[in-house]
């Protein structure tokens, strides 16, 4: 693994996306539009102030997961993945290159989502907007790296698609959106403690309501960061140069 090859891969992925302006537009605005839709649905109630922060975690996470896993799926299908792995490209170069490229898009996407939520959709934030943005970006990058991990695990294209519901849906169900996590049955609450999306939602809600101190949010950010690093490392180890 070398910085030059990692950066060349990140640059290549970004150049590919730049050739497709519609994809960029969809990637950047779809999560924001979905959050706007939720705000509109609840516009006659006060519910948006409660679930708004969770929506900031949910939509960018899911969109980045899907986009990343589909992009790497395409690389697998067209044979370029096999070609690159027959060349002196480290498996880590590939995974980290993708993480950097989509990480940059995640920063833009989350900035738009946070900006619109706070200043257009009227989401009230008691804490720091910058801290909110930091958590939202970490959450979107998490979606990217879990998407990479899922597609590294998969041996075939069909498996990649199956990983989407397997990796993402349980995290949504147990993340505290449907039922606050402390009201979950024993067992499920412990499981939800181990799921990274739970921590992103907790941190966003803590910043929005300013109910916890900065150390708490930093701790949650650390957990999300650990998941990001773990996904990149395990993804790099799991990716196979040789296939049947």
């Amino acid at each position: 693994m070398t910085p030059l090859r990692t950066l060349a891969t990140a640059g290549r992925v970004l150049t590919q996306i730049l050739h497709d302006p519609r994809t960029i537009a969809l990637l950047l605005v779809v999560p924001s539009l979905l959050i706007g839709l939720v705000a509109w649905i609840f516009s006659d109630t006060t519910a948006f102030s409660t679930i708004g922060p969770a929506m900031l975690a949910l939509f960018p996470f899911v969109v980045m997961f899907v986009v990343t896993s589909i992009t790497t799926l395409r690389e697998r299908r067209t044979g370029t993945l096999e070609r690159m792995l027959s060349m002196p490209l480290g498996k880590g170069d590939l995974i980290l290159g993708y993480t950097l490229a989509f990480g940059l898009l995640a920063v833009l996407q989350s900035s738009i989502a946070v900006g619109l939520s706070v200043w257009v959709y009227g989401l009230e934030i008691e804490g720091s907007v910058w801290l909110l943005l930091a958590v939202a970006v970490a959450d979107a990058v998490l979606g990217t790296t879990l998407g990479l991990l899922a597609s590294a695990f998969a041996r075939t294209e069909f498996q990649v698609v199956q990983f989407m519901p397997a990796f993402v849906f349980p995290q949504i169900l147990l993340g505290g959106i449907f039922l606050p996590r402390d009201q979950l049955p024993a067992g499920l609450e412990q499981i939800s403690d181990w799921l990274p999306l739970s921590h992103a939602i907790d941190a966003l809600q803590a910043v929005a309501t300013d109910s916890e101190d900065a150390a708490y949010v930093a701790g949650e950010l650390l957990i999300i960061g650990a998941w990001i690093v773990a996904a990149v490392v395990i993804g790099s180890i799991t990716l196979r140069r040789r296939t049947p």
Binding site: T80, M87, P88
Partner: peptide, 17 residues
């Protein structure tokens, strides 16, 4: 990996580059 060049049957290149 740098001493062997491999061309697959279907062109493995990036169509959007």
């Amino acid at each position: 990996r740098r001493r062997v060049g491999y061309v697959t049957q279907d062109a493995s290149i990036y169509d959007d580059l």
